[in-house]
């Protein structure tokens, strides 16, 4: 038996008895960042493949959500900083070893680009509204011409953004639950899945719903596979990783993780989408909303549970 305690009465706010430096804004940001990455990737892909006419939702209506999601996400991030007046220090340096530095720079490029993207569709989204100034009209025309170029930039940027939400966590070797290489691809897959779900929700044509249900089903299967890999990898790991996994399996996060993330957030919507693809009538809003809620809860579970795992004490 071993018992360890602080005799000098250590009780530092947010660190003892359990670490809680990162609160709900981080989970919300990771969700919104993943969602935006998914929406941007689909918008870019559809544009490059030249299928804007057939699939208008990902390029037009869903892309209105992207800048809103990114801006809210950025606000959430800054809200969780404790020295926010110095945020500009992020942009005085490029630190290749720090995932957060990568994220800050990618967001600096991607957020304005997502606004420009929506602006290039302004007349098509709001056909009754006229741009008042000539230079705005010219600017829209210029953006319209460069849509393909924007799309080429958006694809790598959105993938980095989606992976970054996971790598941000997996780079911390002091939090054993986070410290596994699968978290990056897992968060990317989850982000793409929430993006596809949003497109299904906003879409008005059966053809589009069919395609994105298929894409979403594939992403759900990939996600389930990656989760199995994560669990197996952790169980083959060291004691701290075993302890971390026990939080999710047979610990205080079991219900949240298996009930809400895996069953309600992945398996049930997966089955519903499969039925829909097979031709049964399923209201597509149900799986789409389940995926969005499941994705949000997934971020909360990983962020909260990860902070309970540590090496000492």
């Amino acid at each position: 038996m071993q018992e360890e305690l602080f005799t000098s009465g250590r009780n530092i706010p947010h660190i003892d008895p359990s670490l809680e430096i990162w609160h709900w804004p981080i989970s919300v940001y990771l969700f919104l960042g993943g969602l935006a990455a998914g929406l941007l990737l689909f918008a870019g892909l559809v544009t490059i493949l030249g299928k804007e006419k057939e699939y208008p939702t990902p390029v037009k209506y869903a892309s209105i959500i992207t800048p809103i999601a990114l801006s809210l996400g950025l606000l959430a991030l800054v809200y969780d900083l404790t020295h926010p007046l110095y945020t500009w220090q992020l942009y005085t340096t490029i630190r290749l070893e720090s995932p957060m530095s990568w994220g800050a720079w990618v967001l600096l490029v991607t957020t304005p680009l997502s606004y420009l993207w929506v602006f290039s569709y302004f007349s098509e989204i709001f056909p009754k509204r006229n741009l008042k100034f000539n230079f705005l009209k010219n600017f829209e025309k210029f953006l319209k011409k460069n849509r393909k170029n924007m799309a080429y930039a958006l694809i790598p940027l959105s993938i980095i953004l989606g992976v970054y939400t996971g790598v941000l966590l997996s780079a911390f070797n002091a939090r054993p639950l986070w410290n596994n290489a699968i978290l990056g691809p897992l968060f990317l897959a989850s982000g793409l899945s929430t993006g596809a779900a949003t497109i299904i929700l906003l879409s008005k044509t059966a053809k589009e719903k069919y395609l994105f249900s298929k894409i979403d089903l594939a992403l759900i299967i990939i996600e389930l596979g990656l989760i199995v890999h994560m669990i197996m990898g952790m169980y083959a790991g060291s004691q701290v990783q075993l302890d971390a996994m026990n939080l999710l399996i047979g610990g205080e996060f079991t219900l949240m993780f298996f009930g809400f993330v895996i069953i309600l957030g992945l398996i049930v919507p997966g089955i519903l989408e499969l039925l829909e693809i097979k031709g049964y009538k399923v209201p597509v809003a149900i799986p789409a909303i389940l995926i969005l809620i499941g994705g949000l809860i997934f971020r909360f579970v990983i962020v909260e549970a990860g902070q309970l795992t540590r090496y000492l004490y």
Partner: peptide, 22 residues
């Protein structure tokens, strides 16, 4: 360096000794 720190908490998350605080 206090004037370069934005208080993001990344270093606190990365320290296995929990030696840092805000």
């Amino acid at each position: 360096t206090p004037n370069e720190c934005i208080g993001c908490g990344a270093c606190i998350q990365s320290c296995p000794y929990d030696a840092r605080y805000q």
